[in-house]
Every structure is written in structure tokens, then in C-alpha cells.
Design a protein around this nucleic acid. Structure first.
Lengths: 158, 158
DNA sequence: TATTGTTATACTCTATAACTATA
DNA sequence: TATAGTTATAGAGTATAACAATA
């Protein structure tokens, strides 16, 4: 029996399935974030801050799946547009960020559409199936991260 | 009941779950493609061609989830390194590409490791669960692509 | 005239390293 | 000395438009 990665061909391999599922869903939201002048990484940061809790740069990078320097640059743009602001904290090295009132209104406005798109997907895909899919994705990440980092030798470049 | 997208919080939202699952799995392969001097998009193109069938630029872009200009540029690098080559076809506009023998050997070498990493993930995640996850991802893409493109109005920017 | 692919452009993010400021 | 963040840098991909060659 061939290994899983080739079993069902390239089109149904895990990395491609992940990429295409993401591409197809992201495509539904893109027009709305575009209309607000936001990149997808910027929108993820805004979403992360919308819960209300002020977060530092490192936490935002981890949660939004971005590099810290990318977040640093991206935050500058959001701050220039008065979407986010810095909050004073106890550690002067750590920059705590939160949405401004204007940023919160921007989030609210886009979130309405975002949630409507999700409900459209749910309506066809099935709410329970979608919830299970997310659980399975979270578990996949946990499994992948739990594996040792370099278990396999690269064959000789002879 | 709050909508799905916020139900379980940002961390368990679909876009973030997709991104993080992809990041965590891709991270396991990256050292091996890095060692071969390949970017992930280049590796996807090589994988797509490894089935043996010669493919044109547009097909590669669609299958590998890349823009056509990106593929065009990326192919140049692979061709300079004699990993791929152009095949003569009936339509002179269409550039048909395939792996060279050297490219095939490169693929074989990396595929051994790639499949070993997959087997590691399968061993913990469960082969059937992983197969079902891929099915669910494929279906999510189908559902997302089947939805009308602009069903939701952007609220006024008043 | 429509299609396939390349080139051009401006922008963003990746990834790593070097640097600054604070703890 | 270690940590948090910024800045610098090189490289690659996104996205769109304009262009060339072929059908």
C-alpha cells in the first residue's frame, strides 16, 4: 500500500488540501477586507485584539501566525490610521496594544459581514461538520508540534 | 447563540485553525526542502510534475495555488538548475513542462523524507482520521467555491 | 478577437541577523 | 545576561495591468 501522501495523488495531499481550503475560504472574505483597506494579516491582528484584552507584539505574532518583524511593521500602519493604540504596562520593554474606539467600530463593521459569510458556509457544509473540522485541524497542529524536529536523515547527495 | 466564527474564540476560528495546521505541518518539511535549496512553491510544482504528465503554466498555477506570474518566474529558476524542461506541444502558445531525469532524482530523494514525515504524523494522528480530514478539507473548498461571490453588502461607511 | 504566457510594477510578508532599550 | 521589540536586508509571492506571440 503506497504511503498516504501519494495514495490519493497530489490534488488530495494534505498540504495542498490545506492550502486550497484556506484559499477558497479566504477568497470569500478578501473583497470585504480589501474594501476596508486591510491586508489579511492586519485583519487577523485586529480580530485578535477585538476580544478586548491588550496583547504584546510576541503574542500577536504567535496567534496570528506572523513573524514578529512583520507584526512590528504592520502595527505601525494600523497605529497611523488610529485603529490601534499602545497601552502603558509595567514592563517598559513590552508594548501592549489594543483597539481604539475607531478600531473597534471598524472591527464591528467587518465582523458583521465576516460572520454572515461563515453562516453561508455553515449552512451548506453543516455546522457540526465545520466544528469537527476545526477540532481536527487544532489536533493536527498539536500532533505536528509534538513530533521531534529532525527524525529523518537526508539521503546522501552522492 | 453566537455565530460560529466567534463561538470558540479567535484561536479556534476556521481561518486561524487552517493557517496554524498548515504552519505546523509545513514546518516539519521545511528543513528538507531548504536543504535542497527549494522554496515551498517550487517544491509544490515539482510534486505536481512528479506524476509524470507534462503540464502547462496555467495548470501548475491552479494546482499549486500560485499566481501565474509567480509560476513563470519560479519555473525559470528550476529550468536554470536543469530540474525541469520544456516539452514540445501542438499549441505553440502553451508551454508544457516536465521534470528532467535530474529533477526526478531530486524529487525521489526528497519524497522519501516527505513520506516518512507523513507516516510519523499518521502514526500519531491516525491514518483514517487524516484521510477523513483531507476529505473534509476538499469538501470545504468545494462548498466555499460553490457559494455566490458577493452575497453580502458592506455597511455604509457613514 | 480570444487565449497563453511573460514582463513590469508596487506592495507585503518571510526569514534571519543586528541592534536598542529595558529587566 | 536575558528579554522585547525594532530596524535592516535579501528574497519571494501577491495581485494587477500591459504586452507579446499564437490560435
Amino acid at each position: 500500500m503506497p504511503p498516504f501522501s501519494t495514495m490519493r495523488g497530489f490534488e488530495s495531499s494534505l498540504p495542498i488540501a490545506l492550502l486550497r481550503a484556506r484559499q477558497a475560504t479566504a477568497h470569500k472574505f478578501k473583497p470585504h477586507t480589501d474594501a476596508a483597506g486591510l491586508t489579511q494579516p492586519q485583519w487577523r491582528v485586529i480580530r485578535a485584539l477585538a476580544a478586548g484584552e491588550a496583547l504584546d507584539v510576541a503574542t500577536l505574532a504567535a496567534r496570528c501566525v506572523l513573524m514578529q518583524p512583520s507584526v512590528s511593521r504592520l502595527l505601525k500602519g494600523l497605529q497611523d490610521r488610529s485603529i490601534i493604540e499602545t497601552v502603558a504596562g509595567t514592563d517598559a520593554r513590552r508594548r501592549l496594544l489594543r483597539l481604539t474606539d475607531e478600531g473597534q467600530r471598524l472591527f464591528d463593521r467587518i465582523a458583521v459581514i465576516s460572520e454572515a459569510v461563515y453562516r453561508d458556509i455553515e449552512a451548506v457544509y453543516g455546522r457540526e461538520d465545520l466544528a469537527r473540522l476545526v477540532e481536527m485541524l487544532v489536533r493536527l497542529r498539536e500532533v505536528a508540534e509534538s513530533l521531534p524536529d529532525l527524525p529523518h536523515e537526508m539521503p546522501e547527495l552522492s
